[in-house]
Write a protein that binds this DNA or RNA. Structure first.
Length: 857
RNA sequence: GGAUGCUUAGCUCAGCGGGAGAGCAUCGCCCUUACAAGGCGGGGGUCGUAGGUUCGAACCCUACAGCAUCCACCA
């Protein structure tokens, strides 16, 4: 017998381990259709947060649902080495002990990093268990394991040979704190307040000056020219002359190019080819040299003269002061402009000329754009997110993939120390003279291969054949560029297939005030704390049923409480059913011929619910699916049928039939809630008679059209309406809910036995047919119910008039619609029929009400 | 500069072409043997504004406003 109260911790205890030990998570039943997905691999940087819960719980729901639907489901788990992120964490840990990575050296540092990985992988495993992920551990992968590494090398070498990977010197984003290059998507732009410095440049051979504005005075040591717009009348006469760079006194040319916007600043712009992408392009056009003035820590180099060794900002300050004293500073303005920050370190990113490895994106992106036009495209849910991918792919720059880090896949390029020759190959060339490139690859380079590399690619393994392409991927909109886009192009290039059929995009979880959860705000929520308070199932339910697909949601204690209450409701409904069934109950099949009106009702509603829930589940719309089930559980089952069954059970003849119905309904409710809340579902399932070893071996309820009857639903709905009306009547009269009343039906009863239900639920002392009672009447289709109460005639008349007014409104509304030629001509037939039926029913009710009013007069 | 989303009950959010919904909060009545973390009943919304399309608009279109997010540029 179940406890009176649902205790999530007691329920969760031990279940996961049992499922795992029984092998329920392991895929491979080849008698079934395959269905596969890969986990968005969490970074081994720390504990899981709510974002990971959002990434994985929808997947888990899909996996558990699809298994019940008869698929052989493979969910591949794994983790990401997360190059920069993990290295930053490890370095931070070392720094606390006063050690830098350079003190340790590459090899020792990697040992520390691997220890770190082991520790956090362990934590993550525990958390996966805690939240109940049904991942196939026999196929777990890590982005740095041998298989993935081989795939990475294969991809690198192949793209190199195809001319799609190249080494080049370009302006890249440099993180001076972590001392590595970054890709464009790893740079976060924010509008920062800065200063705009207006400097006076002497024009050689004249006694005139030109004002040049800049936000980056410290880069002036690398300037090669000043540019103006060729149509700018102010400066036309000076073009071709030399001007004096006030930072170092050197002469640089004043030139004209249409790139310059005359309306911006002073219309004169300094050109720093090695520290600005636009200037770089100009310099290439005019053949200027590229002069670097910053080192890898963003400190000034020797070209800065007296400022050598200074931090870029110190130098800026000192240099501006010097120029000011020399009389070449016109003014300083406050200036808000977008500044790039490193996603990981937060440092202001330095655009810098650097030799790096790049992926040539155009051809790869074009392939994706082409495929998205055809039948083999990746389907996005919600569909609008496809546009995000398309736009990004359409305007893509080459991808800088080399990182000056140690934790990651080392680039398979080898340099001959004697000849300078470069070789890119799967294995190191023979001979001591070959030295491997020191850099590693962007962590997303390996993540991009995740869906196929985890299944064995580049080898043709049975798993790869059976489970690739995967069926669905679930992830947040914030990593469409980082991950989704890159998986798509790598997959299409290397396997000729999209990596997944469908991408389900979810929003982000925010705090209760709607702010992004972040470390700096300290508003992050630890899922483990939530589980402590409400249980895993409540967390799972909350996270998947509280926002529309693709939209952000707020964390809410209130909603978790509500989820927990819902589970308690199901728990207690099950408890009631089990108490009713009694010890040793043996489930019996439903005998359709013996069903009573209410049983037909609740079963019909059940079938309707199964059908709707399934269609929403198939569309991965968990909010909608859960809402439909929720309404069924509360309104149809708990509030209505369950209560009614207490009356039915008083009749011995009905006992077998009612028990069979209660059993079927509660069992199927449990099966439907199971993908969301597997722990409580397993507990309840196992407490039911006639269960298998685990709910994980069950199949999903199957829609049975023979039990789906709109007519049966109508009768139940009428009884429901009667109860609600009479209860409302009592409340409006100030009567206690249990005040005794008498009821009379005009005409025949809507269904046999309705008296017993009415007596019980409305505290009716008698229910009679065609008895003359004085009191309010309620009119239903085919039946009129009169409630006798001690009310005066005036109140009675007032109530009837109110009812009449309501019905007149309803009737005239229907009449107007039906009299509207446009409606008749253009509305679908079902709408017209429904409206006609409504009109007739209301008209009949109205007639009855008027007849009663006449009697009273 | 470009794009996207949001604006619905006091709060948090669903609904997105045929009569305004949920949770929480609020008010009233109930400890009725599944559940008081409960039950029953009630109050509360001209669905951001203005136009348009349609027989019919919270829902489609167009403008506008506010909020949020993304991309690009920023000397």
């Amino acid at each position: 017998m179940l406890d009176k109260r649902y205790d999530p911790h007691q329920v969760e205890e031990g279940k996961y381990q049992t499922w795992k030990d029984e092998g329920y998570f392991t895929a491979g039943d080849t008698s079934k259709q395959p269905f596969s997905l890969v986990i968005p691999p969490p970074n081994v940087t720390g504990k899981l947060h709510l974002g990971h819960v959002m990434d994985t719980i929808p997947d888990d729901i899909i996996v558990r649902y699809k298994k019940m639907m008869g698929y052989d489901v493979l969910w591949v788990p794994g983790m990401d080495h997360a190059g920069i992120a993990t290295q930053a964490k490890v370095e931070e840990k070392l720094r606390k002990n006063g050690i830098s990575r350079y003190d340790l050296g590459r090899e020792k540092f990697l040992e520390v990093a691997w220890d770190w990985k082991k520790e956090y992988a362990n934590t993550i495993h525990q958390q996966w268990a805690k939240i109940g992920l049904s991942v196939d551990y026999t196929r777990e992968r890590f982005t740095l394991d041998e298989g993935l590494s081989e795939a990475v090398r294969k991809v690198f070498v192949t793209l190199y040979e195809q001319g799609l990977i190249y080494q080049g010197e370009k302006i890249i984003n440099w993180d001076p704190e972590l001392r590595t290059a970054l890709s464009n998507v790893e740079v976060i732009h924010s509008d920062d307040e800065g200063e705009f410095f207006y400097f006076l440049y002497d024009i050689v051979g004249t006694d005139e000056q030109i004002v040049v504005a800049t936000t980056r005075p410290e880069t002036m040591f690398g300037d090669t020219a000043v540019f103006v717009n060729p149509n700018d009348k102010r400066y036309g006469k000076y073009v071709g002359k030399m001007v004096i760079n006030p930072a170092n006194g050197e002469q640089i040319p004043l030139m004209a190019d249409s790139y310059v916007d005359p309306a911006f600043g002073t219309g004169a712009m300094k050109c720093t080819p090695a520290h600005d992408p636009n200037d770089f392009a100009l310099a290439k056009k005019y053949g200027f040299p590229f002069i670097k003035v910053l080192d890898e820590s963003a400190k000034m180099n020797s070209l800065a003269g007296e400022y050598e060794g200074m931090d870029r900002y110190e130098c800026r300050k000192a240099l501006v002061e010097k120029i000011k004293q020399q009389g070449h500073l016109q003014k300083i303005e406050k200036f808000v402009h977008s500044v790039g920050h490193s996603e990981r370190s937060g440092a202001v990113v330095e655009p810098m000329l650097s030799k790096q490895w790049f992926v040539r994106m155009k051809p790869l992106a074009e392939r994706v754009l082409e495929q998205q036009k055809g039948p083999d495209k990746v389907e996005f849910l919600p569909a609008r997110f496809e546009k995000v991918l398309i736009r990004w792919m359409s305007n893509i720059d080459d991808w800088c993939i080399s990182r000056q880090l140690w934790w990651g896949h080392r680039i398979p390029a080898y340099y001959n120390q004697n000849t300078g020759e470069i070789r890119v190959s799967m294995e190191a060339p023979a001979g001591d003279e070959w030295k491997q490139d020191e850099d590693v690859l962007d962590t997303w380079f390996s993540s991009a291969l995740w869906p196929f590399a985890t299944l064995g690619w580049p080898h043709k393994t049975p798993d790869y054949d059976r489970y690739f392409p995967t069926s669905v991927l679930n992830t947040g909109y914030d990593i469409i560029f980082f991950w989704v886009a890159r998986m798509v192009f790598q997959s299409e290039h290397f396997t000729d297939k999209a990596p997944f059929k469908t991408v389900v995009i979810h929003g982000l979880i925010r705090d209760e005030q709607g702010r992004k959860m972040s470390k700096s705000l300290g508003n992050g929520i630890d899922p483990i704390d939530v589980i402590e308070r409400y249980g895993v199932d409540a967390l799972r339910y909350f996270i998947t049923t509280n926002s529309a697909p693709g939209l952000d949601m707020r964390y809410s204690d209130e909603k978790l409480q509500s989820a927990s209450n819902y589970l308690n409701k199901i728990w207690n409904a099950t408890r009631y059913v089990e108490m009713t069934l009694g010890e040793g109950y043996v489930p019996t099949a439903i005998n359709k011929k013996e069903l009573g009106a209410l049983e037909k009702f609740i079963l019909s509603r059940l079938e309707a619910t199964i059908k709707k829930v399934q269609s929403k589940m198939d569309a991965y719309n968990f909010l909608a699916a859960s809402g439909i089930l929720y309404n069924y559980v509360y309104d149809d089952f708990c509030s209505f049928y369950l209560e009614m069954s207490k009356v039915s059970l008083a009749d011995e003849k009905k006992e077998v039939m009612v028990k069979a119905v209660l059993y079927k309904v509660i069992r199927e409710i449990i099966l439907m809630i199971y993908p969301y809340c597997p722990f409580i579902a397993e507990e309840l399932y196992l407490s039911l008679p006639g269960h298998k070893k685990s709910i994980m071996l069950e199949t999903y309820p199957v829609y049975d059209a023979s039990l789906h009857s709109p007519k049966a639903e109508k009768l139940g709905a009428m009884l429901n309406a009667i109860i609600s009306d009479v209860r409302g009547y009592k409340a409006s009269k100030g009567l206690a809910p249990n005040a005794s009343i008498r009821l009379a039906f005009e005409g025949k009863y809507p269904f046999a036995g309705i008296e017993d239900y009415l007596k019980r639920f409305l505290f009716a002392s008698s229910v009679e047919q065609n008895a003359k009672l004085r009191g309010d009447s309620f009119v239903y289709e085919g039946a009129t119910l009169t409630v006798e109460e001690d009310v005066d005639v005036e109140t009675l008349r007032a109530n009837l008039l109110k009812e009449e007014e309501k019905l007149v409104f309803e009737v005239s509304r229907s009449q107007k619609m039906l009299a509207n030629p446009g409606f008749i001509a253009k509305a679908p037939k079902e709408k017209i029929d429904a409206e006609t039926e409504k009109l007739n029913a209301n008209q009949a009710k109205l007639d009855t009400v008027r007849a009663r009013l006449k009697e009273l007069a």
